[in-house]
Amino acid sequence: MEGTAKKEIIKVLRESILKIEGFKSVTNEMDQPDCMLNDMASAFPYGRFPTGAIHEFISPTAACATSANGFIAGLLSALMANGLPCLWISTKRSLFPAGLKYYGIEPHQVIFIDVKKNKDALWVMEQGLKCNAVAVVVAELNEVSFSESQRLQLAVEQSRVTGFLHRKRPHKENTLACVSRWKIRPKKSYIIDDLPGVGFPMWEVQLEKIRNGKPGKWVFGWRDKQFVSIPLTPLQKIPVLKMEQYG
């Protein structure tokens, strides 16, 4: 009984700390977007992708940046399911808007804002995060300071809007006040049952840090407008029977 009581006390304390840090327990799953990253559930607080928070993505190369944009688009398809638009800010935008349709996002649902300087991108992002008329705000830039990231995190704690900071080829990987840090790397696309074509996209997803969670590495693909979990071993072909559960 004593062991059970201690576990219960620890559970209550952990939940109290999470609430102080802005994480809320999922009382109604219908109100919490399902980002389809089920195999990563144990990595997240309360077993769900943290919304109403700032997530940092770091891309050291152009190829990684393209892959990260694809992965982010997959997350957006779930976060925008409520019908609210996305604000996408860039200093050097390379995203092809029509390509978002592959992820179930209509290009007109995304408001693109192109600026020249990092400070302008950060200002627009902060203003966007304060507006609960949008579901997500994405900013592509290079350098972000800790104090600047603090301002962004404070903004979402009021509006509960989710923000993605995509840092493309930053000079240094300095610590930020973000809830998580991700690195997305491209992997060889997978094909099913020897079908012709380039196959489905696949990413190596490294969660370098996650507040009150468990970092780790996973491999995901994209098929039928949803993430598909794939074993960590290199794969070229995925049998049809293994994929039917996702069809």
Rank of each mutant, 00 (worst) to 15 (best):
residue 36 M to N: 08
residue 99 G to I: 07
residue 212 N to M: 15
residue 160 R to D: 12
residue 159 S to D: 05
residue 213 G to K: 06
residue 125 M to V: 07
residue 94 S to G: 06
residue 101 K to R: 13
residue 103 Y to S: 08
residue 14 R to L: 13
residue 71 F to P: 11
residue 245 Q to E: 15
residue 234 P to M: 10
residue 150 Q to A: 09
residue 152 L to Y: 03
residue 175 T to W: 07
residue 133 A to N: 10
residue 60 P to L: 06
residue 1 M to S: 14
residue 215 P to G: 06
residue 71 F to T: 09
residue 227 F to V: 08
residue 229 S to C: 08
residue 141 L to A: 00
residue 121 A to G: 01
residue 102 Y to K: 13
residue 115 V to T: 11
residue 4 T to K: 14
residue 225 K to G: 02
residue 9 I to V: 15
residue 147 S to F: 07
residue 209 K to H: 10
residue 157 E to G: 15
residue 57 F to E: 01
residue 96 F to S: 10
residue 31 D to E: 14
residue 162 T to F: 01
residue 110 V to F: 07
residue 53 A to E: 07
residue 226 Q to I: 05
residue 154 L to Q: 13
residue 217 K to R: 12
residue 40 M to L: 07
residue 234 P to V: 12
residue 40 M to D: 02
residue 190 Y to W: 15
residue 40 M to N: 04
residue 35 C to V: 15
residue 185 R to I: 11
residue 220 F to R: 00
residue 110 V to G: 05
residue 226 Q to M: 10
residue 157 E to D: 14
residue 161 V to T: 08
residue 17 I to Q: 14
residue 130 K to Q: 14
residue 171 H to D: 00
residue 178 C to F: 03
residue 216 G to W: 03
residue 155 A to C: 06
residue 112 F to Q: 08
residue 203 W to D: 08
residue 73 A to S: 15
residue 103 Y to P: 01
residue 174 N to S: 05
residue 225 K to W: 03
residue 224 D to S: 14
residue 36 M to F: 06
residue 212 N to V: 04
residue 222 W to T: 04
residue 221 G to H: 03
residue 46 Y to C: 01
residue 175 T to S: 09
residue 78 A to C: 15
residue 13 L to E: 11
residue 213 G to V: 09
residue 74 G to Q: 09
residue 119 K to W: 06
residue 73 A to W: 07
residue 92 K to Y: 11
residue 113 I to S: 12
residue 197 G to W: 12
residue 58 I to P: 00
residue 55 H to N: 04
residue 162 T to G: 01
residue 219 V to S: 01
residue 39 D to G: 03
residue 62 A to C: 06
residue 179 V to G: 03
residue 141 L to I: 02
residue 221 G to E: 03
residue 43 A to Q: 02
residue 158 Q to M: 06
residue 67 S to I: 05
residue 209 K to Y: 05
residue 145 S to F: 04
residue 237 K to R: 14
residue 220 F to W: 09
residue 221 G to L: 04
residue 153 Q to L: 10
residue 217 K to F: 05
residue 64 C to F: 10
residue 159 S to L: 06
residue 15 E to M: 10
residue 115 V to N: 05
residue 124 V to I: 08
residue 36 M to L: 12
residue 97 P to I: 09
residue 2 E to Y: 14
residue 192 I to P: 08
residue 9 I to G: 05
residue 143 E to N: 03
residue 147 S to N: 11
residue 135 A to Y: 02
residue 48 R to I: 02
residue 233 T to R: 14
residue 238 I to Q: 11
